[in-house]
């Protein structure tokens, strides 16, 4: 069973629907025992970093995530919260990944919204995904590239489209909204990492 962490963030249901389409059993839950005992965990999220971190700290969900040993996939804000810190509200995050999350600065439109390509794909999360595949992004803050990058994307600067350290995987884009490519990435997380 895949546990989708329910923590007062938007877009949780879309992830569940995407797993339903793949025929994968999942549950949206805030129950600590269920999360601890799940085979794999998805940490989704759309929202604001500082207020969400406050919520994670107060509820103990942050600490729960830190101690998970099974594969975890952070999506969008979920990815940023796994990083060291975020400029969004200048907040310390979970620090599982040492990357810093920064605000896009440039002449281009912000948020970075729409379909963009991912490159330098690593790990089984991107099994059967071609270099330059298109996925759907919506974000104004980005994680800097680091040795933990397993995919990057270019918008204003080159940034981390996906990160991995130990059992923690994270994607900035929305696989649940990225057509067939996104479905393959979710399938890879469920069956191949």
């Amino acid at each position: 069973m895949i546990a989708i962490i329910d923590y007062n963030a938007g877009n949780v249901r879309s992830v569940k629907f995407a797993l339903d389409r793949l025929g994968v059993e999942s549950e949206i839950t805030a129950d600590f025992e269920k999360i601890k005992n799940a085979e794999k965990i998805i940490f989704p999220g759309v929202g604001e970093a500082a207020s969400t971190m406050k919520f994670l700290n107060q509820t103990g969900i942050g600490n729960l995530i830190l101690n998970l040993k099974q594969p975890v996939l952070g999506i969008c804000l979920g990815m940023q919260l796994l990083c060291k810190s975020s400029e969004e509200g200048n907040v310390q995050c979970l620090n599982i990944l040492p990357n810093e999350v920064k605000l896009f600065r440039g002449q281009e439109k912000i948020p970075h919204m729409g379909w963009n390509q991912i490159f330098n794909l690593k790990t089984n999360l991107f099994k059967n995904i071609e270099e330059g595949a298109f996925v759907y992004f919506v974000h104004s803050f980005y994680a800097e590239n680091s040795q933990f990058s397993i995919a990057n994307c270019n918008y204003i600067t080159s940034f981390a489209a996906a990160l991995q350290k130990d059992n923690f995987y994270a994607v900035q884009f929305h696989p649940e909204k990225s057509g067939k490519i996104g479905e393959q990435i979710l399938r890879n997380f469920v069956f191949d990492v």
């Binding site: 879309s14 629907f17 919506v138 929305h174 649940e176």
Partner: peptide, 8 residues
């Protein structure tokens, strides 16, 4: 729609 569609 949300159950069946894989784009935004």
């Amino acid at each position: 729609i949300a159950q069946n569609l894989n784009i935004p």
